[in-house]
Simulated scan of single mutants.
Amino acid sequence: MMIAGGLMVGGFLLNVILTAALHPSGEEDDHPAIFTEYADSSGWIAVHLGQFIGVLVTLGGLLLLYRVLRGTDESALVARLAAAAAVATAAIWAVLQGLDGVGLKQAVDSWASASGAEKRIRFANAETVRWLEWGFQSYFRILLGLTLALFGTAILTGRRVAGWLGWTALAAGVCSVIFGVDVGYSGLASGLQDVLGVAVFVLVLIFAIGVLVTGVRGRSRRHS
């Protein structure tokens, strides 16, 4: 469990640092302005590769947590569903990062270097890629929320781990699902997403640190 928590915390922090420090930011749905920022970003592809790795590491921690939660009691089925949801989340995350980290970059670069009538065509192409990103972002958030909610439920029913961790994961999952649904309707920027983004950030961080601390304490007790 300590390794699971370590992977979750490490992957989470890697993703947060890359996003906050190196990812261009702005009004996400103001496409001319944000596309210009993306085109000017020399580290775009590398940053998204780092984000891809960070989230996969975090999901790997959840899969290790599954090994703690699996068993023969009533939580076993829920734990297996949680692990399957984590794998599905990793798959859609790979598609999303390939689309955003490579496809969108190529599209906005082509738009930025074009002129005349071609520039309008390139801009329309970039918007199409952006809208595809909306779709995958929406379903990624929903699947991530389902994964967290299922792990939270498995913790609560299995009683192998402190119950407050289960409630934390469940709350994070519900917020993430709502976030994902809102992306489908509102795009990548809305007041609701601002609030839910902070909530998911705090809850997932608390959950990851809680799993890590629980694992460290359990190891200490076994060696004492």
Rank of each mutant, 00 (worst) to 15 (best):
G50Q: 03
G50A: 06
G50F: 03
G50D: 05
Q51K: 12
F52K: 02
F52P: 00
I53D: 04
I53Q: 07
I53R: 03
G54F: 02
V55A: 11
V55D: 02
L56Q: 15
L56W: 10
V57H: 08
V57R: 10
V57G: 08
T58Q: 15
T58V: 08
T58F: 15
L59D: 02
L59P: 02
G60W: 02
G60R: 04
G61M: 04
G61W: 03
G61I: 03
L62D: 01
L63S: 13
L64V: 03
L64M: 13
L64T: 01
L65Y: 03
L65D: 03
Y66M: 06
Y66F: 13
R67S: 11
R67W: 06
V68P: 01
L69H: 11
L69E: 10
R70A: 14
R70Y: 05
G71Q: 09
G71N: 05
T72S: 15
D73C: 04
E74C: 01
E74Q: 13
E74P: 07
S75W: 07
S75V: 01
L77G: 07
L77H: 14
L77S: 15
V78K: 01
A79Y: 02
R80I: 10
R80A: 12
R80S: 14
L81G: 11
A82K: 07
A82R: 03
A82Q: 05
A83I: 00
A83M: 14
A84H: 05
A84R: 15
A85M: 13
A85W: 04
A85Y: 05
A86C: 06
A86G: 11
A86P: 03
A86F: 02
A86T: 14
A86Q: 07
V87N: 03
V87R: 09
A88P: 00
A88T: 09
T89F: 15
T89G: 08
T89L: 11
A90I: 07
A90G: 15
A91L: 12
A91Q: 00
A91H: 01
I92T: 14
I92C: 10
I92K: 08
I92A: 09
W93N: 13
W93C: 00
A94N: 00
A94L: 09
A94E: 00
V95N: 02
V95S: 07
L96T: 10
L96A: 12
Q97Y: 05
G98E: 08
L99D: 07
G101W: 06
G101N: 09
L104F: 06
L104E: 09
L104M: 13
K105W: 05
K105I: 07
Q106E: 12
Q106D: 15
Q106K: 08
A107S: 13
A107W: 04
